[in-house]
Simulated scan of single mutants.
Amino acid sequence: MTRRLGSGSLVIATHNPGKLKEIGALLEPYGLKCISAGSLGLPEPAETGYSFVENALIKARAAAEASGIVALADDSGLAVDALGGRPGVYTADWAERQWFEGDPGRDWYMAMGKVEGMLAAQGPETSRDAAFHCVLAIAWPDGEHAVYEGSIAGSLTWPPRGTLGFGYDPVFIPQGHRQTFAEIDPAVKYRIGHRADAFAKLVADQFG
């Protein structure tokens, strides 16, 4: 049987206030008070893993060891069948500008264009199947851990459509839908998405 979370504090291994708010709202009904690694001044570890599971565990373990509190981390991204699962763990990296491109921030249109260009180079009959994946990892300070994986299948379209999402959302059409993630109401997206899938498995295991 998987070790279970008790009530009390849980460190969310992120420096992103938006992610803390989203995960905190999901866990609030279970008596957990979520605090971010950023608010504790914890450093962000290098994500050197070769899979979503490895990177989620790196972040969760680093936060748990540094804080002495149970920690939760997530790692997620887009995997395109015809590209051998890329961008995968490098989903965000594909949006990073180089120093000579000016603004060092992320350019998601550039990232979407890179995926489209690689697919187009393979010809018009190339599969456009893809999936978003999410891994949630819980780590206890003594080293024990639990992992929950979620995904949603779909296909890619071009050009990008919609303004409600972020990242690769404007080119991803979830299976069974006609709209992209950036055209679908965010409340619906959160309910059917990869993070919701992983979170449902976490809740069933930890609180079921």
Rank of each mutant, 00 (worst) to 15 (best):
46 A>R: 15
31 G>F: 09
98 Q>R: 15
119 L>D: 13
46 A>E: 15
57 L>Q: 10
178 R>W: 12
6 G>I: 00
60 A>T: 08
202 L>T: 01
58 I>A: 07
63 A>S: 14
161 R>T: 04
141 P>R: 09
147 V>E: 01
25 A>V: 02
64 A>I: 13
154 G>A: 01
82 A>N: 11
117 G>N: 07
39 S>L: 11
203 V>C: 00
40 L>E: 02
153 A>Y: 05
139 A>R: 01
63 A>K: 06
200 A>I: 02
194 H>K: 04
67 S>P: 02
81 D>I: 03
57 L>F: 03
90 Y>K: 15
47 E>G: 09
22 E>R: 01
133 H>T: 03
7 S>K: 15
151 S>V: 08
170 P>Y: 13
139 A>E: 00
6 G>H: 04
139 A>T: 06
63 A>R: 04
108 W>L: 11
112 M>F: 06
182 A>Y: 03
142 D>R: 12
142 D>S: 15
63 A>L: 10
163 T>I: 11
17 P>W: 13
79 A>L: 12
193 G>N: 15
42 L>Q: 11
101 E>F: 08
182 A>R: 08
152 I>G: 09
115 V>T: 00
88 G>L: 09
47 E>L: 09
159 P>R: 04
86 R>Y: 02
173 I>P: 09
122 Q>L: 14
98 Q>A: 13
20 L>A: 10
87 P>I: 09
25 A>F: 11
192 I>H: 01
105 G>S: 14
9 S>K: 15
63 A>D: 06
48 T>I: 08
181 F>H: 12
55 N>W: 00
28 E>C: 11
75 D>R: 06
55 N>A: 01
1 M>F: 10
145 H>S: 08
64 A>C: 06
37 A>Q: 13
90 Y>P: 01
186 P>M: 09
67 S>D: 05
93 D>F: 15
138 I>H: 06
131 A>T: 02
52 F>T: 02
197 D>Q: 02
187 A>T: 13
150 G>D: 10
164 L>N: 05
162 G>K: 03
50 Y>R: 15
42 L>F: 12
9 S>E: 13
33 K>S: 15
194 H>F: 00
96 E>A: 14
200 A>K: 08
97 R>E: 12
60 A>I: 03
140 W>T: 11
94 W>C: 10
148 Y>G: 04
11 V>W: 05
61 R>P: 03
57 L>Y: 01
53 V>C: 13
173 I>V: 15
12 I>H: 01
174 P>Y: 04
11 V>M: 05
75 D>K: 06
165 G>Q: 05
50 Y>T: 14
76 S>F: 01
170 P>A: 03
